[in-house]
Design a protein around this nucleic acid. Sequence first.
DNA 1: GCCAGAATTGACAACGTTGTCCAGACGTTA
DNA 2: TAACGTCTGGACAACGTTGTCAATTCTGGC
Lengths: 385, 385
Amino acid sequence: MLDATPRQSGYRHPTDLDATPRPARLRIGTGSRHPREQDRRTVTDTARSTTRYGTRPTMKDVAARAGVGLKTVSRVVNGEPGVTPDTERRVQEAITALGFRRNDSARVLRKGRTASIGLVLEDLADPFYGPLSRAVEEVARDHGALLINGSSAEDPAREQELVLALCARRVDGLVIIPAGTDHRYLEPEIAAGVATVFVDRPAGEIDADVVLSDSFGGARDAVAHLIAHGHRRIGFIGDQPRIHTAIERLRGYRAAMDEAGLPVDESWVALGSTAPERVRSAAEAMLAGPAPVTALFSGNNRVTVTVVRVLADRSRPVALVGFDDFELADLINPGITVVAQDAARLGRTAAALLFRRLDGADEPPQQRVLPTRLIPRGSGELPPA
Amino acid sequence: MLDATPRQSGYRHPTDLDATPRPARLRIGTGSRHPREQDRRTVTDTARSTTRYGTRPTMKDVAARAGVGLKTVSRVVNGEPGVTPDTERRVQEAITALGFRRNDSARVLRKGRTASIGLVLEDLADPFYGPLSRAVEEVARDHGALLINGSSAEDPAREQELVLALCARRVDGLVIIPAGTDHRYLEPEIAAGVATVFVDRPAGEIDADVVLSDSFGGARDAVAHLIAHGHRRIGFIGDQPRIHTAIERLRGYRAAMDEAGLPVDESWVALGSTAPERVRSAAEAMLAGPAPVTALFSGNNRVTVTVVRVLADRSRPVALVGFDDFELADLINPGITVVAQDAARLGRTAAALLFRRLDGADEPPQQRVLPTRLIPRGSGELPPA
DNA sequence: GCCAGAATTGACAACGTTGTCCAGACGTTA
DNA sequence: TAACGTCTGGACAACGTTGTCAATTCTGGC
C-alpha cells in the first residue's frame, strides 16, 4: 500500500501508476528538448512554422504576430471586453494562422481551478458503472467541467493511488465508489477544498457526502418476494464481505427470513469473490444435497449472470431474484426478476451534490439513500420445486 | 458547429462545455480569492494550519518548515539523488505535517507533458464502449498516464468541442472514436505533437492511425451464414449512413448477397437511427407483406437488442445474426448468433499504438484491421419459415 | 482647440514547479 | 596544511497564463 505522502526511497510520482518495474515513461515525439532550445521563442515569428512539430505557439507568439500586447491576446481569447473590433480581428488572424490554442495548464496554475472532476470506480467495463459514469459526465458537462476517471479494480491501494493522483492534478472534486474501508488519507485533500462525494458505498473513517442505493431494503424486498411465493429454503450469493453493499444485502436477506420466522442454514449463504467459478461452485453446493435451496437471491449483476447460467444447465426449476437490473433480463426464459437500482440516478445525484458543494453550499455531510424497485419477470415467481 | 479557434464574440472557453445559456461556472468553496491574499504565503509557516480550508501548502511552505531550500524539497518529492538522509527526513516530516501534495498543474507547465491521454467515444453507457475504455485505461496506467474521457453522443460538434478541450488541457495523446467525418480541425494539434489514434471508424479528411474491426468481412460472413442456412430474403437494419461502420456492414451484406447471386430488394435495407422505435418499425415492415424476409442481420448491439424484442413478440421464427456480441446472448432462446468484435482488443491495440507514437515511433500512419468472429448460437441457424 | 473622462492597451508580477548552475562543506591526498 | 575533488544545498529563471494598474489614445463638450 502506498503512503499518502511522498517518500524518497522508491517514491513514485503519484501519476506513475504502473506497478511494474519497467521504466515506462512518457516522452513526446521530439525526444527530450534541449534546454537551450527553450529560447527559440525569441526568434522572429516568421521563423516559426505553423506545423513545426512538437512546438506550440503561445499568446506571446500570437501577440508578436498581431503586433499587440500579450494581455490583449488574453482578452480576445477569453472574450473579455475592451478590445476594438480591428484589434480583435488582427489577433484572430494571428490565432488562426498560428493554430494557437490556449494552454489550460498555465491557466489552471494561475486561476487555481481546473474545471475537472475525478471519478474513481471499480471497473468501467462493468455494465453497472457505464451509465453511472456517463451520468456524472453529463452533470459535469452542464457545469463546464471535464471528467477524469479511473478504475480501482476493487483494490484499496489502487483506489488511493488514483485518488491521490487526481488530487495532484488538482481536480476540483471527486466522486468515489470506494474499494477501501479507510479514507482518512483524504483528510488533507478535503480540508484543502476538494469536494468529495462517495457513491454506492459509504466512506470509511471519515465524514463525507454519500449517495447509496437502499441495499438493505431492496434485498429484504427480494427475499420477502421469494418467501411470498412459497419458498422456505433460500440461498444468498453475494460479493466480498469487505464491500458494504454485500453486507447490507446480507442483512436484508436475514431480516426478511427473520421476519418470516424462517431459519437460515449457514450453508445457504456465500459471500466472496464474484468470479464465475466461485459463484458457480457456491450455487451448485446450495442446489445439491438432500435439502437443497429452492430459490436463490444473487447479490449483484455479475453474480446473477453466472447463476442464470448455472440454472440454465439444470432441469429442476429454481427461483431467482437478482440485485441489479441488466439488459435483456426480460428476454431470458423465464424473465429474470430483479431488484433494480438506478445507476444513472446514483451518478446524477452524486454529481449534483458535488457541484452544490463546489458552488459553495456549506452544509454538513449528508447521506442520500435512493430507493430500489422490484421488477417481477418470472424467475422470482417460480414456485418451490 | 464551433470554430476550431477562439473567437471573441460568443467565444467560449473550450472546457466550457455546456451548451445552455445558463452561466454555470465552477467556483471553489472559498469563493473568489482576493488577489491581495496571494501574498499570505510570505507569512511565517507557523501561521498556516494544516487544515486551513481552500489553501494548499506549496513546496515553498514545506521548505520553510523544514528549514531547507525549495529545490531540496523538489528533490525529495521526486526522489532525486543528492539529499542526505537527515535532510530528507526533515523534509518528509514537513510534507506530512502540512499535508503537502505536489501541484501537477505547475509540473505540467514546467515539464510540458501531462502524462494523461484523452478518449473520446460515443457513449460510455453503451456496453460496447465500457470494455474499450477500460482497456485503454489499463494501457495508459501501464505507461503511468491517466485517462480523461468524454462522450460525444454521436454529435460531431460535441466531438470537436471535447477534443479541443482535451488539447487545451495538453493531453499527450488522443484516442478518438469519431462521430464526425471531417477532422481537419485536428491538424494543428497533430502537428504540435499530440499523438492521435482513431478507433472503430477512420478519420475524416486527415491521415492518421486507425484501428478498425473488419466490419465488411464480418457482415459478409454473417449474411453468408444465413444464406448457407437456406435464406434468400434477408433484411439488414443498421446505423446511420453517416457512420462508417454502418456503410461497411451494408457493403458486406450486399457482397454476400451478390456472391450468392441473390437480388436485394431495397425494402430489405434500413439504415438510420438506432432508436428502438425506428428499429422496431423497420423490422416490422420487413416482416410484413406478402414476401417478408425470413432472416435479419442487425448492424450493431443496440439494433440487435431491439430486434430480439420484436422477434420475441412473434410466433413465426425468424433467423437473426447480430453484429457485436453481448452478454447473455447465449441464454436467450434460441441463443443469438453474432459476429463478435473484441472491444477490449480494439482499445488495447489503439492505446498501444498511441504510446508507441509517444515513445517516439516515427512511422507513417497505419491502419490496423482486427478480425471478427462468427459465433453460432441458434438464432442464425434457424431455417427459413 | 482644449480638457475631462472614458475606452483601450500593455508592462509586470504572480501562480508552483523543475532545470541550471554556482557556492560551500567535507574528505582525501600530497 | 594546502590543493583538490565530491557531495549537498539553494538562488534563480523559466514554463504560459491572468489580475492589477498605469499609460496611452480616443471621444465629446465647451
